[in-house]
Design a protein around this nucleic acid. Structure first.
Lengths: 189, 189
DNA sequence: GTCTATATCGGGATAGAC
DNA sequence: GTCTATCCCGATATAGAC
């Protein structure tokens, strides 16, 4: 792999583990096996490198989620597939995590891909809920955009509960709770 | 207010705004209007001060949430009151935020109050759901602990969505979505 | 109790040799 | 392209005067 690629990948990992504030250029260089000069040759600095990493991480998340949401089955099936997919729960969400970073939120450039990605996810989920409504799969009256927001929030908040307790149990409980509420709105006819 | 109190309060604010990694002793001193020597006289160092701050913030959150959860009304009313309470949404949760801080999660001492507080909240909500089940207010079959986890996760994840988009709308949408699913499990008889 | 001085280290980057 | 040298500043304290 090329040096820029290794630098970006190392930055992706470190942003996930330690956030923007907690990630130093030196740590990036060491993990990438690249020297100081090499890093500053390819990238303007920490913000530049972070942007490249965030963009790549965001694209990866869209790819992963998209596959599940575009998959086969009913609307409920696809939402379930997204919620129940295997995750490294205790590591949290590499995209959502960034919203707790003051420097990321303060930077229009860095926040943009985060907003886009989570916005896309909500939009895609809302479409699926709408499809379910159209098919008569859900009880009329629920609002697609609200259900979509609740689904994404449950996942993002599940990470918080899991990390607080040091166990994935809380994440699973939240997901099951949401699904148990949603399932009763399906029409098995 | 005493100097230690001002130091703790300044630390509470900074931990909320910038997290543990992003908060420096110097910043604390400046916000508290205390000198270097003064801070190190009253507290052993940054971890010690942070612990005092986290404990106090946790107690405050229990106090606030407890009042709403112990309030009047049906189980659904009290859960609604908790979800719909006024919040500084874009600031996020001062307790949940800490779970994204690697140094907090790595420290048994610092993580303990976070775990306790969120655990207490889930437990209290689960009790209320159970009361609702006992009263025949909810459709049988839902699992109190799971619903409780979903409720707390929706709030914590709602903060993430709000901060990502720079708007409180996503938080509100998620909460309304969850309530819309829950309300249909109530028995208005 | 609070102040100032001092110390060490790492963050974040630039400069110029190779 | 990559390396090493160098720079400045802030993070996180300790020491000792007042």
């Amino acid at each position: 792999m090329s040096t820029p690629d290794r630098l970006i990948e190392a930055t992706q990992e470190l942003l996930w583990e330690r956030g923007y504030v907690g990630t130093s250029p030196k740590a990036i260089q060491q993990r990438a096996g690249a020297g100081q000069g090499s890093m500053y040759h390819h990238f303007a600095g920490k913000p530049d490198l972070a942007l490249a990493a965030v963009v790549r991480t965001s694209a990866g998340m869209r790819e992963t989620a998209g596959q599940l949401l575009d998959g086969p089955g009913t609307a409920f099936d696809r939402i379930s597939a997204y919620l129940l997919r295997e995750r490294d729960v205790l590591k949290g969400c590499p995209v959502g995590r960034l919203t707790m970073d003051p420097d990321v939120v303060a930077s229009e450039a860095l926040r943009a891909p985060v907003e886009e990605t989570l916005g896309w996810l909500r939009g895609r989920l809302a479409e699926i809920v709408q499809e379910g409504l159209d098919e008569g799969e859900f009880t009329p009256g629920i609002v697609p955009d609200e259900i979509a927001a609740a689904v994404v929030a449950t996942v993002q908040g599940g990470y918080v509960l899991a990390r607080a307790s040091g166990s994935t149990a809380a994440f699973d409980a939240g997901v099951r709770g949401l699904l148990s509420l949603l399932v009763r709105h399906t029409d098995p006819a």
